[in-house]
Design a protein around this nucleic acid. Structure first.
Length: 873
DNA sequence: ATAGGGTTAG
């Protein structure tokens, strides 16, 4: 009976080892010559010879044991096999290599690292010579059992590594552990060692590319595989489909899929999940139905892949058909399927059905709980979401990072600070705060709740901060109106890492809020150098920054150059024109947006209504208000009403405005009444002002601005007694006037002025300059409006304060310290005062300088003695 | 003829 290589191979179980004739007799002995084999073995040992007197006995046992062990291995009884080996071990004996191999094989299959290690130690302490086959088998066992380090060590010690099998296995294990780079690295080493990869190698490497998002390698690899003819392997083709999908190249994935001649179930599943991944839910569902009607078998992965697509489209009816089908198929108990189902229902606004699925599940994983938590949170029921988190914990399910971040997200979305603190406490107690994802979610939660001190303390306590940590905190400061903190942190960050697009989009609003054109320009330069301008968020933030820093033409230039303009871009530009008082331009941009087919939303309507009111475009304002309600069916919110009241107020239609507020279907807030109070001031209606003010004071008792406003109304009507009473009222409430302050950037430095400030180094010069302005104004017949100073200081200081208003100081400082012809840009935290407004007009003419003043409400462009607001402020 | 491609929550 001739021992063909194939037959030998099947006996040994190692078909891939090089079958050189020299090795054959030793490693692949025919079963009947076992004795001869062992003789060969012992004779091959030169120094370590088996003790001669016990040899025979040992061999006898060994042979008997060997048969028994092999039989046990064949049956898959590892426990008994191990027991036998242990027994043999106590008698000085050695098993043959093949038996060791079969035990190791079984350890590998079962995944019992402990037994595998035991066998390894028995082999090491015995006199068995570890030959290449055994070392390979050992490496194989370690890799299969998850001991990558030991597997790698044994692999490296192998003399010959010229078969791809162990390479593949090693690569696969690295990939399984998420170390895709190492896997690719091994592939390169393998390739340059001249070892021919096989289809397994390529499927593994394609998967690594997919996880590394190496989209560009996808095409290269594809071409290469075509050349080698590996594209004919279904597994390789499927891996390519998956790679293309995961790198966002869904067209290529579809092309690949279409061209596959023998699509199997995995091909279908891959393309369906690829579509879903790339936002082509409809196409995913279409493919699924095609599969369904073509009678192609459908399995668990198919259903689990298509359910998110159904969720996205909102096809919960089809979803429930799938639900029924899955039960019929006997997949009802599958936990991943139930998770996908409950997620589908909850995303289709069908939380009750989701709860039903959840409650009927025999076993629930952390994924099930997390899905329910996000379901409740999506429904706005964040208290129940948080309660569910507590319940999960009580049921002994340990929340993982996803669960924690999901529940924290629920807290951030609803500014639920108490609940957020509760979760924070849980996180700390369980030592989960060392995780970066959790720490970042905590920072985000605190930032969204407006608790920047807490966000900061988490930030400071996080050791390995990543870019997300920095961005979260910077963005938090920006949004919490702490622009200086945001800018400070941004500078600090630049010492440690390179900011990305998100950083830019987070920091620009900070520049915008303090109108820091210099800092904004610096960041613009940074953006240009990094190529971040292509990012839509960054471009929008940049346009907004320029508009808010008073550089409207620059904003427009950037806006015009934007390749893709989204709703935000248009809205930013409309709002930009609005705050500068260019109502007509705002309207024309709005119309252009509509022509481009972009649907305005509630925010863009706020922008256009604001623009109309600040330019006195009353009829247009009404027209937009009606279009919004009738054409776009957008329910007006408080902001829209406030704009409309403002519009009516400016036009002097105060009674109509009052009635308008009374007819509102939602409860008006302080800003709505406040807008009317402004109108009362403009049109000097003291009586109505008093009525309106009571509403405002009731709604916003802490806001001093409104008391000042009413006081000014009294003062302008020369009702000094009422001024006095109101002042007492404020004093009784212990309210303090928010001090007015203005600032200007000169040569890259911000100069800040508060009323009556004399600490500035150029104070004397500024004073002299303002005195000269005042003299010239008097000469030309202007009378200073003393009343504006009333609420700001003691009576004795009145005259002086009038001259010392912060915006005037800043403007004067700008005139004195910047080159001729350069526009002066000043920002004030409150509304500009009337006297200062007159003075600014005068200076713009006198000094032939453009002055751009941003106050808390809008922009004023002073040029040649006129202001762009034309009195609308 | 020991391995590989597709799977839910954020």
């Amino acid at each position: 009976m001739a021992a063909t290589p194939q037959a030998l191979a099947s006996n040994s179980g190692h078909p891939w080892l090089p079958s050189t004739s020299a090795r054959k007799p030793r490693f692949f002995p025919p079963p009947y010559s076992l004795r001869a084999f062992q003789t060969t073995l012992s004779s091959s040992k030169s120094s370590k010879t088996i003790a001669k007197d016990s040899t025979l006995l040992a061999q006898k046992h060994s042979i008997g044991g060997t048969t028994e062990i092999r039989r046990l291995c064949k049956m898959g009884n590892l426990k008994e096999a191990m027991n036998s080996i242990s027994r043999m071990d106590s008698e000085i004996s050695n098993l043959d290599l093949e038996t060791y191999c079969s035990v190791l094989q079984l350890c590998a299959e079962i995944g019992s690292l402990l037994d595998g290690r035991k066998v390894h130690s028995i082999i090491s302490s015995s006199e068995t010579e570890i030959d290449p086959v055994l070392s390979s088998k050992l490496a194989f066992m370690y890799l299969k059992c998850g001991d990558l380090r030991e597997g790698r060590r044994l692999f490296e010690s192998l003399q010959s590594k010229d078969h791809p099998f162990l390479w593949n296995l090693l690569m696969y294990e690295y990939a399984r552990n998420g170390d895709f780079e190492e896997s690719v690295h091994l592939f390169e080493r393998m390739w340059f060692s001249g070892i021919r990869p096989n289809s397994h190698t390529f499927t593994c490497i394609l998967k690594c590319f997919a996880n590394l998002k190496w989209g560009r390698e996808a095409e290269k690899a594809h071409g290469f595989l075509l050349k080698l003819g590996f594209d004919a392997h279904n597994a390789v083709g499927n891996a390519l489909v998956s790679l293309y999908s995961k790198c966002g190249r869904i067209e290529s994935a579809v092309l690949m899929f279409d061209e596959m001649p023998d699509k199997d179930i995995i091909s279908w599943n891959s393309i369906i999940s690829g579509c879903v991944l790339n936002g082509l839910a409809e196409m995913g569902v279409e493919l699924f139905t095609k599969m369904w009607f073509a009678g192609i078998p459908i399995d668990l992965a198919t259903l689990v892949s298509v359910l998110p697509a159904l969720a996205e489209i909102g096809h919960f009816r089809v979803g429930s058909v799938v639900h029924g089908y899955s039960i019929k198929c006997g997949l009802g108990k599958e936990i991943t399927l139930s998770n996908s189902l409950l997620n589908m229902y909850s995303k289709c606004q069908n939380l009750d059905d989701a709860v039903r699925v959840f409650e009927r599940m025999g076993e629930r994983s952390v994924v099930s709980w997390t899905s329910m938590i996000s379901g409740y949170s999506r429904d706005g029921r964040f208290e129940e979401a948080i309660a569910l988190f507590v319940k999960m914990e009580l049921e002994g399910i340990r929340p993982d990072l996803y669960a924690i971040t999901t529940v924290l997200h629920a807290c951030s979305c609803h500014a639920a600070i108490e609940e957020g603190k509760f979760i924070h406490n849980y996180v700390s107690r369980n030592g989960l705060d060392s995780d970066l994802f959790v720490a970042n979610a905590l920072m985000d939660m605190y930032a969204k709740c407006g608790c920047m001190e807490f966000a900061r303390s988490v930030f400071d306590g996080t050791i390995n901060k990543d870019i997300i940590s920095w961005n979260t905190l910077i963005g938090g400061y920006s949004k919490s109106s702490l622009p200086n903190e945001a800018l400070g942190l941004f500078s600090e960050m630049q010492l440690k890492m390179k900011p990305n697009c998100v950083t830019m989009a987070c920091i620009l609003p900070a520049c915008a809020s303090i109108s820091s054109l210099e800092r904004g320009r610096e960041i613009h330069g940074h953006i240009l150098r990094s190529g971040y301008l292509l990012d839509g968020y960054v471009a929008n933030a940049l346009v907004d920054m320029y508009a808010k820093c008073g550089a409207l033409p620059l904003a427009r230039l950037l806006f015009d150059r934007m390749v893709v303009k989204d709703l935000i871009s248009w809205t930013v530009m409309i709002a930009g024109y609005g705050m500068h008082g260019y109502g007509k331009e705002a309207i024309s941009i709005f119309n252009e947006m509509k022509r481009e087919g972009i649907q305005p939303d509630d925010v863009s309507f706020i922008a256009i209504l604001y623009a109309c009111s600040h330019s006195g475009l009353i009829d247009e304002g009404w027209r937009f208000f009606n279009i919004m309600r009738n054409e776009y069916r957008i329910e007006p919110k408080l902001e829209h009403y406030a704009c409309m009241v403002d519009l009516l107020g400016r036009a002097g239609r105060l009674t109509k405005a009052y009635k308008f507020i009374e007819s509102m279907p939602i409860k008006p807030d302080g800003t709505v009444w406040g807008a009317l109070l402004c109108g009362c001031r403009t049109h000097r209606d003291v009586k109505l002002a008093e009525r309106v003010a009571e509403h405002v004071f009731e709604l916003e008792p802490e806001n001093t601005g409104y008391y000042i406003l009413l006081a000014n109304i009294y003062a302008e009507a020369e009702k000094w007694e009422s001024v006095k009473k109101l002042r007492e009222r404020i004093a009784g409430r212990r309210l303090k006037k928010n001090p007015g302050c203005s600032w200007i950037e000169i040569k890259g430095r911000v100069q800040i002025f508060v009323s009556g400030d004399k600490s500035h180094p150029h104070s004397k010069k500024i004073e002299l300059f303002l005195e000269s302005v005042q003299r010239r104004m008097k000469d030309e017949g202007h009378i200073p409006k003393k009343i504006y100073a009333l609420m700001n200081a003691d009576d004795s200081l009145k005259e002086e304060t009038l001259c010392g208003h912060s915006e005037k100081l800043a403007i004067a400082c700008g005139i004195l310290n910047s080159p001729r012809g350069k526009p002066i840009r000043v920002t004030k935290n409150l509304r500009v005062c009337g006297d200062c407004h007159e003075v600014a007009k005068f200076i713009s003419k006198m000094a032939a300088r453009e002055i751009i003043l941003r106050d808390s409400n809008r922009f004023h462009h002073f040029k040649e003695g006129r202001c762009s607001c034309r009195g609308y402020w």
